[in-house]
Design a binder for these strands. Structure first.
Lengths: 216, 216
DNA sequence: CAATAAATTTAGACTTGTCTAAATTTATTG
DNA sequence: CAATAAATTTAGACAAGTCTAAATTTATTG
């Protein structure tokens, strides 16, 4: 088994890999709230264990075994989030920190039974897909609201930022998962976006648009 | 917050305190599967934090704050065991190790909601009482089968040993929680006990009798 | 393309929790 | 009650994971 720190590094490398081929030391340091030198130390250990491909100064990628571990942790994280929201009635902005701890409970048998107990959900409370026990993700083709043009429309499906502040803001604006929206206008000056929902118009900043994903 | 190691020491001190006023270094070392010198080191740290009363060579007791932490961990352990058995259909001999990890999930809000979700159970799958969120235990007056005399009877209520081997043995002998028994005979030679159940007699060793608790 | 800036790694140190071996204290017993 | 045994603590070391400061490599740019 791997240590808690190792698991967190693998998970972070996985997440950063979605946006960039190679993950850099500084990116990891920023995400993990640690120092670049600490990251370097850990990268050597993970490389020795053959969980990552690491070339000094060139960043890292996950090996197949490394990715498997990372996806398994993400599966656990998302299933526990689903449990906390659907069974224990937490709100979607309250569950991230708890799931950060729970994702490290080691038993896979436990997580598979939890999965069945909840009816094998496909998406977590933030709209992220839950990988199955083989690590397979349901394919879903989402687009960032910030990448749309006027008149395009779709359904809010997921968020890219899980901070309570962001989620509470969305909740207040009634921009929660499942809501149908259409791009009414894009402000040229600051790239703010005006969304048309069923009953009203809502203006959101570029920052917000850049963290909202819709299914077309 | 306290570290995982600290929590495990406090929990162990609590458990050992039930059988002896002062808990010794060696008792702790045996229970925690570590060396006496390591225990001494940790006792100093816990003493500095005023979670235990420690006098070198004299053993330790928990302070009020220390006991509070210990009981809270035990509450978490037992609620998670209940969850694993009642919701995820694990058997009573399968849940101890998982609960050992889960008891360290920090959120008390989570555990209180889990408690309500399950209907505030009073006993865990091994018959141990689950303390409430204030740390109060339901009083229950149990007796060891090994302490009974012939003709005494009662209901199997709890076990003092949680090892899979012991629990599986009990399962096989149909000596599970709720079963009514009467002491039919005590063999003088080795203190084996012959139990009369509704439909048959079962002979158990002194060792087994010493780990079975009944309610009279 | 040389000089500077940015990113990364190395060196050396610290904390937590553990260990072995030696020293010390307490308990036991002839 | 002195001698031995048992329990406990101290001393010194080690692995994991982190840090600061210095050195090195890579990237940028005038």
């Amino acid at each position: 088994m791997n240590t808690l720190a190792e698991e967190n590094y693998l998970k972070s490398i996985y997440h950063l890999s979605l946006n960039a081929e190679n993950v850099s030391t500084n990116q990891l340091a920023a995400l993990l709230n640690t120092k670049a030198s600490s990251v370097t130390d850990m990268l050597k250990k993970l490389s020795d264990k053959e969980l990552i491909n690491y070339t000094p100064y060139q960043g890292v990628t996950l090996t197949v075994p490394g990715e498997k571990i990372a996806v398994n942790i993400i599966r656990k994280h998302r299933l526990w989030e689903y449990f906390l929201v659907e069974k224990l009635n937490f709100k979607w902005d309250e569950v991230h920190e708890m799931a950060e701890e729970m994702e490290h409970i080691s038993s896979n048998e436990l997580i598979d039974r939890l999965d069945k107990f909840m009816g094998c959900p496909e998406y977590d409370p933030h709209g992220d897909p839950i990988p199955d026990s083989n690590g397979a993700f349901k394919a879903n083709d989402l687009k960032l609201v910030s990448a749309l043009v006027v008149t395009e429309s779709g359904t809010i499906w997921a968020v890219r930022n899980h901070s309570p502040a962001f989620l509470q803001y969305l909740e207040k604006q009634e921009l929660t998962i499942g809501k149908k929206i259409r791009i009414a206008e894009i402000i040229e000056f600051d790239h703010s976006v005006i969304l048309q929902t069923e009953d009203k118009k809502i203006q959101i900043s570029r920052e917000v648009a850049n963290n909202l994903l819709i299914s077309i």
